[in-house]
Amino acid sequence: MKTDDLINLLSTNVEPVDRRQLRRSLGLAVALGAGGALITVLLALGVRTDLHEPGVLAFLGLKLAFATGVVLMASLLLTRLARPGGEHGTRPILVLLPFAAIALLAGLSLAHTPSTHWEAMIVGDMWLNCLVSIPTIAVVPFAVVVWAVRRFAAPTNLAWTGAFAGLAAGGVSAMGYALHCMDDSLPFIALWYGGTIILCTVAGALLGPRLLRW
């Protein structure tokens, strides 16, 4: 094929392009992923039954705030990385903010508690449940985000892009899991929520180069 023929083909009847499409479709993908995570939790795990007890809503709000912070940061960076050359001039360090905040709160909470209670606060009752659930629930949101990136975006750093897709998926998964989780302690959130979300991020980084090639 002659390159001039290809150029002819591509420049015949050119349609105008919607410039907001990329941002909108990635935002929509994250929102759909969050919906998927919510439905999974409602159907498979159920919402915690002690919502009326004192202090429970505060912890639920805290978990949701942390997870939402992660999702917002991840979406922001994902939108940048979705464009060719977007990895230049981004500050991936920003995503550490929610993690730093929750780690700080966890540290303060431990400092104000006698060390005999630490084990119960850190390990909680359902750490294994959390460890398994968050990455599992993240699978569907991750697939949706990857699909949107493949279809609408053109990332040139696939490992980083995969990592932020994983981070966003882990974040929406944690938002959903928070509705079910009955472990109310800051160190628990920092370790098990933070840890499983990081796990999702690493998985995304490893899968990115394979899944996002274009």
Binding site: L22, R83, P84, A154
Partner: peptide, 12 residues
Amino acid sequence: LMAIHTRRQTYD
């Protein structure tokens, strides 16, 4: 060229 054309919505 194909990539530039089909992914031109990624140019800001």
